[in-house]
């Protein structure tokens, strides 16, 4: 972990406004995927009241210290960073514990992130839901952001609020991940389409994740999908996001428009004109 030779760390806020759209799942999977690509990655759980990143990464039993103790100088940063067993390039740092009465200030956040950034290539900040203090704290140290949303009116509306706040804070670039895409429903126009969402939010898309039951299975196990390299659609989507973040040019395909064979194309056409199936 020599900090001398490397470029400054990318500090990325992962936020959504609305809760339950997949922030933490994205953070966990992206963290693993980046680490696998050789990037020294730290995921920071800024949601200290309802922290869950530890659970998704399977690290819930290994947390002893948090950013709070590091800032209070009761422990060193290395002691608080929880290294992932299978993926040593990845470490987790919880911002605080649920018993904390007072949250750190945006200033504290900047201090801890600066410390972490010295020894990492990527710092992913898992933002709490909402746009109140929790968001403001998490956003204080972020340079860039990924807004994650689902193709639902409430999630898109909340995402729009968050994007507005990020813009006024000068966080850039802000990129979009569209989660829980259901190609069939999109094809029959019973769901907001990919283009609809990108038009409305006017953000560049960095990833499309199709609805995938494997996500639930992996959450149950505490092993992010990107860890086992299994070929599930969501796993691939997360891996592709990681690669795009590193600057690789991987085309995005709208799953509701992809053509497979003549039959699928025909069915698509019928579906589009009639809305049947």
């Amino acid at each position: 972990m020599d900090a001398v030779t490397s470029a400054p760390a990318r500090i990325i806020l992962i936020c959504s406004g609305k809760g339950g759209v997949g922030k933490t799942t994205l953070t966990a999977n992206l963290g693993i995927a980046l680490a696998r690509l050789g990037e020294r990655t730290v995921v920071l759980d800024a949601d200290f009241g309802l922290r869950n990143l530890d659970l998704l990464l399977g690290l819930e039993n290994r947390i002893i210290y948090t950013a709070q103790e590091v800032l209070a100088e009761t422990c060193r940063l290395e002691q608080a960073l929880v290294k992932h067993k299978q993926e040593p390039n990845l470490a987790l740092l919880p911002a605080g514990n649920p018993r904390m009465l007072e949250w750190l200030t945006p200033d504290d956040m900047q201090r801890i992130v600066a410390m972490v950034a010295e020894r990492a290539d990527f710092v992913l900040i898992d933002c709490p839901a909402g746009i109140e203090d929790g968001f403001k704290n998490a956003a204080a140290a972020a340079r860039e952001a990924i807004v994650i949303t689902t193709p639902e009116v409430s999630a898109v509306r909340d995402a729009d609020r968050v994007i507005g706040l990020l813009n006024t804070r000068g966080v850039a670039p802000v990129q979009l991940v569209l989660n829980r895409v259901r190609p069939k429903m999109m094809a029959s126009q019973e769901m907001l389409g990919v283009d609809d969402v990108t038009d409305i939010l006017a953000l560049p898309l960095v990833g499309l994740v199709v609805e995938d039951e494997q996500v639930i299975v992996s959450t149950n196990r505490g092993e992010p999908l990107t860890l086992n390299g299994n070929g599930s659609p969501a796993a691939k989507a997360y891996q592709n996001i990681a690669r795009r973040l590193r600057g690789e040019d991987i085309p995005l395909e709208d799953p509701s428009k992809t053509r497979k064979g003549l039959r699928a194309r025909l069915m698509n056409k019928i579906r589009k004109t009639t809305g049947l199936f």
């Binding site: 898109v156 729009d160 507005g164 769901m191 409305i200």
Partner: peptide, 19 residues
């Protein structure tokens, strides 16, 4: 109209007000 289209129209309106 398909519900997806309605969703888009409703969103555009509400966001114009929000913004």
């Amino acid at each position: 109209k398909p519900s997806g289209t309605m969703a888009k129209e409703r969103l555009q309106l509400v966001l114009a007000h929000d913004r």
